[in-house]
């Protein structure tokens, strides 16, 4: 399993600078917002956490459709499914999700404090947003795995994955953003939405790979 994790990590970093493109997309999405809403620093500071979250959500959807597609095209997926008796397929999926998250999404989380500065957010808000992103984005990867597994056999699955995944990711977005707001706006609490966010990630950590494994097995042809 460690071998699979390392292989996917290596592929994610080596193949065409995939991680860089994700961060770049994130930067670009966040950078266009001030052009849209105007450079009012107070307004930007207020909507900052939401913009960072939406940017990270969109950027982390980018490479998701390739999660199983490459493996399917070169026949790796067949062998992963056939190894079920040694490595439970859901675990295999989980490991692939984690490798995807480390290679493609973790750089976004690391870049987010910098973008927080661009959004004129205060240090506490930046820290809270980065923390919620760190905790919340794995959930998006786990939900995304289901979408990627369902769409794996489709020739143009990329957009479909995003369409399938976005509605499911809304709860993550809601609690992520409200926790980030809670840290800076006084009457709103930080801890309850943050804990719900953690719970969501744990929930999808189990549900996502199981559902994805079922979809992959059903989709083998």
């Amino acid at each position: 399993m460690l071998a699979l994790f390392l292989r996917d990590l290596r592929l994610g970093i080596r193949a065409g600078g995939g991680a860089l493109v994700g961060v770049l997309f994130f930067l670009a999405v966040v950078a266009v917002v001030p052009f849209g809403v105007g450079p009012d620093l107070n307004l930007l500071a207020r909507i900052g956490p939401a913009i960072l979250w939406i940017g990270a959500l969109l950027a982390s959807l980018l490479g998701l459709d390739r999660l199983f597609q490459d493996d399917r095209e070169d026949g790796t997926l067949d062998l992963l499914i056939l190894s079920e008796s040694r490595h439970m397929l859901a675990l295999t999926v989980l490991v692939k999700c984690l490798a995807h998250w480390v290679a493609a999404v973790l750089p976004l989380v690391i870049a987010s404090p910098l973008l927080g500065l661009f959004m004129n957010m205060e240090p506490l808000g930046i820290a809270a947003t980065s923390l919620t992103l760190l905790v919340g984005t794995p959930a998006i990867a786990f939900i995304g795995a289901v979408g990627a597994a369902v769409a794996v056999a489709l020739p143009r699955g990329g957009l479909l994955v995003s369409v399938l995944v976005l509605p499911l990711a809304i709860p993550v977005l809601i609690f992520g953003v409200s926790a980030a707001y809670g840290a800076v706006n006084d009457p709103n609490p930080f801890l309850p939405p943050f804990l719900i966010l953690c719970a969501l990630t744990m929930f999808f950590l189990v549900l996502g790979p199981l559902a994805a494994a079922m979809a992959l097995k059903a989709g083998a042809d």
């Binding site: 290596r10 592929l11 080596r14 193949a15 070169d74 026949g75 790796t76 067949d78």
Partner: peptide, 11 residues
């Protein structure tokens, strides 16, 4: 051993 070789070109 299927039609695909199950190998990654980048490795």
């Amino acid at each position: 051993l299927g039609h695909g070789n199950a190998m990654k070109t980048a490795l």
